[in-house]
């Protein structure tokens, strides 16, 4: 596991994740990075806010502890925050795991408390993605959008406003446009 001794800002892991030394990763044992994911400085990832009640589905004990799972080619910009959502279900309070797909871009200063973010999702600067919202594949969220808790955003959507609403449909080329492989190579 010894990371390649990077000369610069980033620590690179075996799977190609580049994590800034100035990022704030809490509870790293509960965080899974898929590989080739970039985490910039001041970015906060709250892996310590894990599920406190046992999962109803009898999954293996290993995956039950995961608080945040992030896919490949994701990019978490400066000062963004990822924290798992919490709620009371049947009288019991708990945090619930957050799943983030591949090619997900989170802009500067954005706060993500979604339950699930799909593949190829671009979240602009200073956005707030409310608790338990579900963002499907191929979605672009414009700067300054506030998505209300429990919102579902379907595929090929352009989201804007406070609260964030689907304002436009993305073109068929959106999967190519939202690909972040090039971005990874630039870092």
């Amino acid at each position: 596991m010894p990371a390649k001794q990077a000369k610069g800002e980033y620590i690179e892991t075996d799977t190609g994740n580049k994590v800034s030394r100035k990022s704030i990763i809490v509870g790293s044992q509960n965080i899974i990075l898929g590989g080739k994911t970039i985490i910039q400085a001041e970015c906060t990832v709250r892996g310590d806010l894990r599920r406190t009640i046992p999962s109803s589905s009898s999954s293996s004990s290993n995956s039950a502890n995961v608080a945040i799972a992030i896919g490949r080619y994701c990019f978490l910009s400066r000062s963004s925050i990822l924290r798992p959502p919490c709620k009371i279900l049947k009288g019991q309070f708990s945090y619930y795991p957050m799943k983030i797909g591949d090619h997900v871009f989170v802009g500067e200063g954005s706060v993500v408390e979604a339950a699930a973010v799909g593949n190829r999702v671009t979240i602009g600067k200073n956005c707030v993605i409310g608790k338990f919202s579900i963002i499907k594949d191929c979605v672009r969220i414009e700067d300054g959008t506030v998505i209300a808790p429990n919102t579902v955003i379907p595929t090929f959507s352009l989201v804007r406003g406070r609260p964030g609403l689907v304002v436009e449909e993305l073109a068929e080329t959106a999967p190519e446009k939202l690909d972040l492989k090039q971005l990874y190579r630039m870092i």
Binding site: D137, C138, P154, T155, F156, E172, A174
Partner: peptide, 9 residues
Amino acid sequence: VQSTRFRIK
């Protein structure tokens, strides 16, 4: 509904 694939594009 949830697919982002196309048969023809």
